[in-house]
Structures are given as structure tokens and as C-alpha cells.
Simulated assay, not measured.
Amino acid sequence: MDIVIRGLGFNVPSRVLTNAELEIMVETSDEWILTRTGIRERHIIAEGEASSDLAIPAVEHALKEAGFTAKDVTHVVVATFTPDFVCPNCATTLANKMGMNGVMAIDVNAACSGYLNAMQVGRGLVCLVENAVVLVVAVDALTSRTNWEDRTTCVLFGDGAGAAVLTRTTGADDEGLILDMEFRCDGNVGDHLTVIGGGSRHPYRAGDVVGPEYFVQMNGREVFKHAVRNMDAICSKVLSNCGKTLDDVDIFIPHQANLRIIEALGDRMGVPREKVFVNVDRYGNTSAASVAIALAEARQLGRIKRGDLALLTTFGGGLTWGAGLVQF
């Protein structure tokens, strides 16, 4: 069954945190951050703001582009590992704020791979339910899980949201046709990227002091190796599934973790630099929202035109990774 992306949207907080400001907060420098990550600035949520708040403008833009209203939505799938609350889930909270009570609303947690995984769930729902209008949202307020005393990780992350509206195709003129998606995981190496504290194995206890285990911890060198190798392999797989090659791809949108990973992946795959979309310098790593923001922004900037073939790939905690091919 042909499934299309009807509309896209994204949103980032207005508060910008620059490398110069981080120099005051932690032992680092603009040169060190820029050289190792390619990040110049990132957007962070305001006091009292949460993931569902970030998502609303992205959802409104995606619905408007799709020609739908909140009342048309039948399912809400939110990719996040920083929901407003442990319970209720972020999808239910967002649905309530958007006036969508009564729909199916679920969260998907695949860390930075969340957006494409949520899209795959959305595709399944569209196949199962006639006339389904599935709202897929990827949002993370990652700075709420950032240890600002850890200079190796605090420079990497930012907050943001992206949204997409999925339906069945209505005809040959549809843009945003999802050709295929592929996904993998490897829990044997899941300890390279973790937030351990707060789960059932390391639960909260009244009176406990919050330690570093409640924030993102990462073995950057190992994550780098796994990310480049596995995103390369899964991109090759999804292209092969569709009878396509890299020569057919007009724009390549990888997870915006850091510039070194993006460049190493592009070089390994043989993708010309001009085909690779990069916005990590302005947003940092926004986790599940990374590819969602990049896809919506690339479309907004005119980097994706009618007839273009877009190759998307993600990599995140779990470890999890995936790729998708979209014909615009």
C-alpha cells in the first residue's frame, strides 16, 4: 500500500545557547567544540517548558501543510525519550493540548532513531485503518537529561521537535511517497549510550541524590564506529530493496549527531558533500527530532523539490538504527 507524507513541520525553542556561553559554564572552548563536533549553537527549552510544548508549533505547521486540522487526526505517535512525564505518555499529553482526545496515542522510544521508527509505526496504522490520518511527532527536550558538568556530552545536545502527517496515497501526483524503511538493533552494545537512572533496574527513591546516571552517558568513540558502519550498511540495504543506487539520491539526510560522524558516513558511502544536508551546526544533536527537523527544514529551504529522492538514516541508543527512502 502506498503511503505518503502529506505535511512536515518543525520547531525549536527561541533560547539559543552558544559555544561562547558554554565556555563560561564548563571547561571547554568554542574551538574545541567546533573542531570535534561542528556545533556552533543549540536551542534549549525555557524554564517550565516541556516536550509537548515544543511539539505544538511543529504539529500545527505539518497539519496546515497537509491541509488537515487537529480534528482530522486519527492516531498520534510520538517518538521521544524525554516525555513530559513518565505517565501519562507524551502522545496523550500532546493530543489533549491539541484537542485530539479520543484518538489512539502512543509513545515510541528508540532514542535518536525514534523518528523513523515512529514513521514505521505510522505506516502500519495507515495500512490497517482505512482513512487513517496519522500524526507522527519526534520531540526531545534533551537538555533536561544533560549533565552540565560533563564537558564531553553537554556541548552536544539541543532541544527541538519535528512532525509529519501520513495518509494513504490518493493518486499518481502525490509527493512524499515512502518507498521503504529498514531497521536494526544491537542490545549487546547498548551500554555505549545510556540514561540508566529512573528505570525499574535503577529506580528513583525518595530522598536520593540525583547522580550522573540520571543523565546521558556515552562512549563517544565506540558510538562513532558503530554509527558510521551501521548507517552505511542499512542505507545500502534500503536502496537495494528499492532497486536504487546512490546516484539516484538527490539529498541525503543523516542523523545530526555531530559533523565528524556525518562527514565520515558520507565519505564511506561516497555521497558528494553537496548532496548531504547538515544543520547540526545550528541545532546540535536533538535526538529523536534530529532527522525530523532536518527533513522539514530541507523542504522549507527548497533543498527538496518535486521529483527528488531523499535518503534518510538514523542512529541512537539501544543501539538502534534505521533508514528510509522517500520520493517527493
Rank of each mutant, 00 (worst) to 15 (best):
Q120L: 15
A110K: 03
G99S: 11
D84A: 05
T93C: 11
Q120D: 15
N101S: 15
M119N: 10
A110G: 01
V103E: 10
M119Q: 12
I106E: 02
G114R: 09
M119A: 14
Y115C: 13
V103T: 13
Q120K: 15
Y115G: 10
Y115A: 15
T92R: 14
D107T: 06
L94N: 03
I106L: 12
P88A: 08
A91N: 01
Y115D: 12
N101M: 15
T93A: 13
N109M: 03
N101A: 15
A105Q: 10
C87M: 12
A91G: 01
M119D: 08
M98C: 11
M104V: 15
C112Y: 03
P88I: 04
V86W: 10
G114V: 07
N89W: 04
M98N: 06
A118E: 09
L116H: 12
T92M: 15
V108Y: 01
A111R: 03
C90Y: 04
C90E: 06
S113Q: 13
F81M: 13
L94W: 01
V103Y: 10
C90G: 02
Y115H: 14
A111I: 03
P83T: 00
M98V: 06
A118Y: 06
V78E: 00
N117L: 15
A118I: 07
G102E: 11
A91T: 01
C90V: 02
V103F: 11
V78T: 00
A91M: 06
N89E: 07
T82Q: 04
A79C: 08
C90K: 04
G114S: 14
G102R: 11
G102F: 11
L116E: 14
M104H: 13
F81Y: 11
N101F: 14
F81L: 13
K97S: 06
I106G: 01
A79P: 00
F81T: 06
G102Y: 10
T92F: 13
C112D: 06
M98P: 03
A118R: 05
T92H: 13
M98S: 04
T80Y: 08
D84F: 01
A110I: 02
L116S: 13
N96K: 14
D107S: 01
L116M: 15
N89K: 05
V121K: 03
V86S: 14
L94S: 00
V121N: 00
A118Q: 10
L94M: 05
D84G: 04
A91P: 00
C87E: 07
Q120N: 15
G102W: 11
G99F: 07
P88N: 07
V103W: 10
N96S: 15
L94G: 01
C90P: 00
N109F: 01
C87T: 08
V103N: 09
N109V: 01
V103I: 12
M100W: 05
G114C: 12
A110M: 04
